[in-house]
Design a protein around this nucleic acid. Structure first.
Lengths: 240, 240
DNA sequence: TACAATGAGATTGTCGACAAAATCTAACTG
DNA sequence: CAGTTAGATTTTGTCGACAATCTCATTGTA
């Protein structure tokens, strides 16, 4: 009943070939941008990219228009598209929005989650704990693991548009600037505790508390992230 | 410094002719959809529309791709685009998101607004009061006036992305389904009081209170809106 | 030497035509 | 008469070519 689905994965799932060239190239380019294969701020050259993907400029331009809709490129008339380059202040803005929206997701999840749902969350956290204690725990935790947790919470909100907005747009944007701070130390143990407290609140159906705890959790992530960015700026200006 | 700007108005401002056909047709179609000129759920016929706007299918398809990005149409491969048709549950989802985000906007506005800013808000509300007491007050207030107020609050948040999201996307979507409930009775006096209380909180720099008041204000709007939709459903099913 | 005009090259914007897919119609079969 | 299949028509997807615009280097002049 009303399952939350990732609509953004139109094509690149297991072996399902794309329906249209524009959609296919859109997925490829989106992943490439988020992965950091395109330098942020770099110009997008239509003839070159069309040749690279083996398509004509028509579908390519449609793909670029979709990227514009996903806020991953900026288009200026008669000047072409550029890969977005997020400044610190813009990353901060996105974190502010995420803080509010994930608070909402938690609030809704606390009202709607079944005991089964909570069990699945606990399982996920248990798997995370095992990973933390393994050698590459830190890396795993902050990369895929943390994201898994937030994904699952958002789907428990049973608000499809909220899911699309957070998981289909904002997360991509944040990953884009996280490429810079790739090896940020993070704080796995602390985050792990916070996750458990959030699940506690959801399990008790305490929507208000779940909201507050999640917002606090994201605020911490925001701070460590901004600090990492500041540090990079300092290194650049001192080493230059 | 750092003025909040409506980036969505690329073309249709005063006399400034569009830079590119695709952008121009995008604006026209977006306005037409929001205005209700396109029946929600109706199919978009490319050859016909291209002829209507006097352009070829290339730019038209790019415009449609941008509309897809704005969530105003849905595209299925090899089947074309359809104007979005929001169900009650989806409108509800959008209101939930709006509630959270405008709360955030208020919270930020309370922290950042200068006394000048507050004065402008008061002026706006005073103008509204005059309108309310005039003959077509009700209509004015709920249409342009109410929106003006919310626009201004969101600008005061000084979060450009929040502004784009709320004023550039969500408001359009809500206006789209408000077309149905065109003459909803609303509650101008009550809303007017709430607006004043919100400005009070912002003036005092009480971010927490401003947040709560705005969320409550939108929750009321959400309820009257959903009730109006329910009433329409009843009329349809009984009169049929 | 500094600076503006000019022109060549490259890039974006637009178009019409063709290919592939879907839809509709109508005839055919049980 | 219902259901299915085959063909015709419409619509979407893709391509290559041309026009408009921008960029940048070169040249000429003060």
């Amino acid at each position: 009943m009303s399952e939350i689905v990732d609509r953004s994965a139109k094509s690149n799932a297991a072996g399902v070939k794309a329906q249209t060239l524009a959609d296919d190239v859109f997925s490829q380019m989106r992943d490439a941008i988020v992965r950091g294969d395109f330098e942020p701020g770099s110009k997008i050259n239509e003839p070159q990219l069309a040749a690279q993907y083996g398509i004509s400029r028509g579908p390519l331009r449609e793909a670029i228009r979709r990227l514009e809709g996903a806020k991953l490129v900026e288009i200026k008339p008669n000047a072409g598209a550029k890969v977005i380059s997020l400044k610190k202040s813009q990353a901060f803005e996105i974190y502010e929005i995420r803080e509010s929206l994930e608070g909402l997701a938690c609030r809704l999840a606390a009202r709607k989650a079944s005991s089964e749902d909570c069990l699945k969350l606990r399982d996920l956290l248990a798997a995370h704990e095992a990973q933390i204690q393994s050698e590459d725990g830190r890396l795993y935790y902050q990369k895929a693991g943390d994201l898994d947790f937030h994904y699952q919470i958002v789907s428990l909100s049973r608000n499809q548009r909220l899911f699309d907005l957070l998981c289909g747009e904002l997360y991509h944007l944040l990953r884009l600037c996280r490429v810079k701070t790739s090896s940020q130390p993070s704080r796995p143990e602390q985050a792990f505790k916070e996750h458990h407290h959030i699940v506690d609140a959801i399990e008790h159906g305490d929507a208000e508390l779940a909201d507050i705890l999640m917002r606090r959790h994201i605020a911490s992530a925001k701070n460590t992230f901004i600090n990492a960015l500041n540090q990079i700026d300092e290194e650049l200006s001192s080493g230059d």
